[in-house]
C-alpha cells in the first residue's frame, strides 16, 4: 500500500529525515517509535502533504501513485488520514459543517452524489457511538475550547467518518489519561479491517498495549535504526532509548 524509499526531507533548510525506508501492506499496523526530535512528526507531515516540509530526495509511493505530487486534499480523497498531534482549533466552523463538507468532497472525488442530510445525520450518530464521543461536542466549533482528550477523540471520530485506507496517528496518546487512551484505542481497533492499514506514531509503549502492532520501527536522528516485531516495543519500554543510542554508538 505504502512504499517509502530513501526519503530525505528538511524544514527551513535543516535536514530532519535522512533516508527513510518503509513498506506497509493492507491490513497491517506499524508503530513508529523514537525519542523527541527524531523526525516522527516530520514523517507524518510528508505523508500528509504539509508544505512546511521540503522533500529533497526519495520517493513515497501510495497504491502505485507518486504521493508527493498530490495536494493534501487529493491525498485525503485517496484514503490517507492524519490524526494530528495538536489538532487545530477553527473558531466559527461547526464540526457538523466541517464533516459534511469533507465527506461530500470525498464522495465527489469518487464520482458520487452528495449525501442526503438524513443519511448524514444517521452516519454521524452511528460513528459517534462507535468512538464514544459526546453528542454536544459535534455542535461546537472544530476543536475550539476542547480539552486534550476531547480533541483526540474528535480526531478518531473524523477518522471513523472518512473511513481512510491509511491512517497515521501522530502521538494520539499524548496528553490522554488511561480511560481516554482506552477509548481512543478501542475506536481505532473497531475501525480496523483487512483492507486498511495504520501507522501509529508514539513515544511510549503504553498505547501499543491496546493497539497491537505487526511491526515496530525505531526512528532516531532521521533514520529507522531498528525494525522488529512487537517485542521491540517492550524492550524499549524496559530499557529506554539510551540502549539503542549506545548500540548505535558501538557500531
Amino acid at each position: 500500500m505504502l512504499i517509502i524509499k530513501d526519503l530525505h526531507a528538511e524544514i527551513d533548510g535543516k535536514e530532519i529525515l535522512k533516508g527513510i525506508n518503509l513498506e506497509l501492506k493492507a491490513g497491517e499496523v506499524h508503530a513508529i517509535m523514537g525519542p523527541n526530535g527524531s523526525g516522527k512528526s516530520t514523517l507524518a507531515s510528508v505523508i500528509s502533504g504539509r508544505d512546511l516540509v521540503k522533500v529533497t530526495k526519495g520517493k513515497v509511493i501510495y497504491k502505485g501513485n507518486n504521493l508527493l505530487d498530490m495536494s493534501p486534499e487529493a491525498r485525503s480523497h485517496a484514503g490517507i488520514f492524519l490524526g494530528f498531534q495538536y489538532p487545530i482549533e477553527i473558531p466559527g466552523v461547526s464540526i457538523i459543517n466541517f464533516m459534511k463538507t469533507a465527506l461530500n468532497e470525498h464522495r465527489k472525488a469518487r464520482g458520487e452524489d452528495a449525501i442526503s442530510p438524513s443519511d448524514f445525520l444517521k452516519l454521524m450518530r452511528e460513528k459517534k457511538a462507535l468512538v464514544e464521543i459526546d453528542s454536544s461536542l459535534v455542535n461546537r466549533s472544530v476543536n475550539e475550547g476542547f480539552s486534550g482528550g476531547e480533541k483526540k477523540r474528535n480526531e478518531i471520530f473524523q477518522m471513523a467518518m472518512l473511513e481512510p485506507e491509511l491512517a497515521i496517528l501522530d502521538e494520539t496518546d499524548s496528553g490522554l489519561d488511561i480511560d481516554a487512551l482506552r477509548t481512543v484505542a478501542n475506536g481505532v481497533n473497531k475501525l480496523k479491517t483487512p483492507k486498511n492499514a495504520t501507522i501509529v506514531i508514539t513515544h511510549y509503549q503504553r498505547l501499543l498495549d491496546y493497539i497491537i502492532p505487526d511491526r515496530v520501527h525505531v526512528l532516531y536522528k532521521g533514520r529507522i535504526v531498528k525494525s522488529s516485531g512487537r517485542e521491540l516495543a517492550m524492550e524499549l519500554e524496559e530499557k529506554g532509548y539510551d540502549w539503542i543510542k549506545k548500540e548505535l554508538a558501538n557500531d
Binding site: 508544505d51 489538532p87 473558531p91 466552523v93 466541517f98 469533507a102
Partner: peptide, 23 residues
C-alpha cells in the same frame, strides 16, 4: 487550519471559504 481542512479532503478554495465564513 487551512492544512487541517485540506488534510480532511476539503479543497483549498472551499477551505478558504470555510475559514472566512467561520471567522
Amino acid at each position: 487550519a487551512m492544512f487541517y481542512l485540506r488534510s480532511r479532503g476539503i479543497p483549498e478554495n472551499e477551505a478558504r471559504m470555510m475559514m472566512m465564513y467561520g471567522f
